[in-house]
């Protein structure tokens, strides 16, 4: 029963939502909307569990004086300030409350900084990936060289438009063909996984074997 009931509930929910996909009738649309609302309600409760986990994990770090435990103090203080700012101040954009101030002046710049690191990581990853160690990696290197040269004005001037044409062909023909092949595989894989979950063959999400 402990295993059969969740499998049955999963099948029921998956079946109803699958049918809903094909039925535009308002009654089925309401089923979808209600299920989304339930998902949000459950999400709110899980946020509490998440915050408890976060606080517990960082308090433990502080108590045990683990490596770089000082950052845990910043995390806890940041959490308390954000929650207080949201509860006692305004969360509307442009309201000038502490919540939005922290969002605009702390979170956004830090996130942008992390994102900007990507440029350097792309360079270092490309340096390793484009080494001509075998025939296949040499093809990759040449393709990358043509695409890079074809995407900058210098390449266009150097080759009188040849490099951009080669780059376009590489991107629109072999690249798109490979992407579509992977996408077809992903689509079938997702459908197969969904059916396995629906039929109870795949139970890993409920800690099954």
């Amino acid at each position: 029963m402990k295993r059969q009931l969740p499998v049955f509930l999963t099948f029921l929910c998956a079946f109803v939502l699958t049918v809903q996909f094909f039925v535009p009738h308002r009654s089925f649309e309401q089923v979808y909307e209600v299920s989304n609302i339930w998902l949000q309600i459950l999400g709110v409760f899980t946020i509490l569990i998440g915050i408890m986990s976060l606080v517990e994990s960082h308090l433990q770090k502080i108590r045990r004086r683990q490596a770089q435990w000082q950052y845990s103090i910043i995390t806890i203080v940041g959490l308390v300030l954000t929650v207080a700012g949201g509860l006692f101040g305004s969360v509307e954009a442009g309201s000038g409350g502490i919540f939005m101030w922290m969002y605009n002046n702390v979170l956004n710049p830090i996130s942008a900084t992390m994102f900007s690191l990507l440029a350097f990581f792309i360079a270092s990853a490309a340096f390793r990936a484009f080494r001509a160690r075998s025939a296949m990696s040499t093809i990759l290197l040449l393709a990358a060289a043509f695409v890079m040269l074809g995407r900058v004005p210098l390449g266009d001037r150097m080759s009188a438009g040849l490099f951009p044409a080669i780059a376009d062909w590489l991107l629109n023909v072999p690249n798109v063909a490979a992407k579509r092949a992977i996408l077809i595989g992903i689509g079938l894989g997702e459908a197969s996984m969904a059916l396995r979950v629906m039929l109870g063959i795949e139970r890993s999400y409920m800690a099954g074997d």
């Binding site: 595989g185 894989g189 197969s192 996984m193 396995r196 074997d209």
Partner: peptide, 29 residues
């Protein structure tokens, strides 16, 4: 890559039922 991630469960469990679903995927492909 892509579908290989979904195939992992069938591959790791070696369960004939799950392997059957992989074969169905191959036929559909």
């Amino acid at each position: 890559m892509g579908e290989e991630l979904y195939a992992a469960s069938a591959y790791l469990s070696n369960d004939p039922l799950q392997l059957g679903t992989l074969k169905a995927q191959d036929i559909a492909k």
